[in-house]
Nucleic acid binder design. Sequence first.
RNA 1: AGCGGGGUGGAGCAGUAGUAGCUCGUCAGGCUCAUAACCUGAAGGUCGCAGGUGCAAUUCCUGCCCCCGCAACCA
Length: 477
Amino acid sequence: MADKKFYLTTPIFYPNAKLHLGHAYTTTVSDILVRYHRLMGEKTYFLTGSDENTQKMVDAARKDGKEPLEFLDGIVARFSSLFSELSISYDQFIRTTDQKAHWPGAQALWQKLVEAGDIYKKEYEGLYCVGHEAFITEKDLVDGKCPDHGTAPEFIKEENYFFRLSKYSDAIRQKIESDELLIVPATRKKEILSFIAQGLEDVSFSRPRKADWPQGLGIPVPGDDSQVMYVWCDALSNYITALGYGQGGELYEEFWPGMHVIGKDILRFHAAIWPGMLLSAGLPLPKTLLVHGFITSGGKKMSKTLGNVIDPEELLAEYGTDAVRCFLARHISPFEDGDITREAFKDAYNADLANGLGNLSARIMQLAATHLEQGTRPEAAEFPAEYIQAMEKFEINKAAEFIWSRIQALDQKITEQAPFKLVKTDLEAGKKIIFDLTQELYVIGCMLNPIMPETSKKIKDAVAANQKPENLFARHD
RNA sequence: AGCGGGGUGGAGCAGUAGUAGCUCGUCAGGCUCAUAACCUGAAGGUCGCAGGUGCAAUUCCUGCCCCCGCAACCA
């Protein structure tokens, strides 16, 4: 058990805008899983980062009147400030513009694909839409313009490198079917298998270096400085470059392969292109892909025009870190789309935290502080099987549900056994009940560790100190 | 068009071939240790529609209807 390893990554995020609730969700789910495995005594490594070599970022920077690299530093600082407010316990933040940490590994991986004979040059011509950052076909056009962006596409003829993904369709399918590459939930596995069954096409793997990209942006293709890597080798590779792949990294030897937490929109890249690259390079595939859904608000996708955007920063400022983590963990399924509104958040906060956990802690610890002589810090808390099973299956909402069923059971127990009454007639019997309550509260504190690290500590400390904690969660009305 | 997800008491969700559960809300009662909290009970659903297979379907199959996402700030 002690030498079990757990490596988990989030996607790397686009630094052209600030992070929204969806990013906060991915990262929080990831953090809960990592903290759980850490709690189980495993050696963990938790990676997150930013995907920086992109045209959209350059555009956003210029629009902001900043040089891209300077702009990036500012955005990345905001990322880490959000992560810190969310108590995200990552070990490393990888940036794809990092020429020391990232580039050598990405280039080493490219080289492997070349050696495997899977990189070839191809002339490509077509209509390129700048807004899409992609080629579009003539039949997409309306009046000669891109219907989404209202601009005429440029006719581009360029030579690019391609990756022979088609060669790996069968091998990838086999790995996924056999769960060697486990895709959770099963519906996503089915979805990607039906996609792969159509046969995978080779993918464009590089772009000509753009004149307006500064030095330091875009990873040069080994042996061809006129080209930079396209997103696949540039970004997906972060999962191993961060561990020092290609640079004799010990972390790589120790932790790869691990698991990726991703949103449903990037399933294809992670379940088709990325495994294809790894197969070509002769490297192990990730063990698990956890694919979560999107967070909607009022049943609709959050959008500025609808005005239903919920900003994680605002929620954090109003309710605090653990309250936000608790909502995301308990009320959003890690496998499907989930919904949040301010009203629902407030209701859940009052029910789960103020009336539930907070009030229970207060009533038990008030009794304990009044009637017990001293606190206790139980040696090793037993984790109930239901909790373990849910967490192992990544069902953090069910794990949370289980904790709250325990909270309810304790409230019932206090009412039924009425230790506050019993102490007046049979002090010892009353004290025994109160002591038991503190022990059970302590276990709840332990189980809460991954989901609500701060609250977990406060509860355990309160039991240890035999003191009623400060009001943990004040009601919001 | 195609692909994917979903339609279950007022709201949000679980769930299973055989008396339909949970949370919130509502109503009534109880308790007083606690954060006007907590506990108990009640009302409220023909489980989208129509067929089919089964002794039996909300649960399996077929068809249909409706909603949502796949295009934006994107996980």
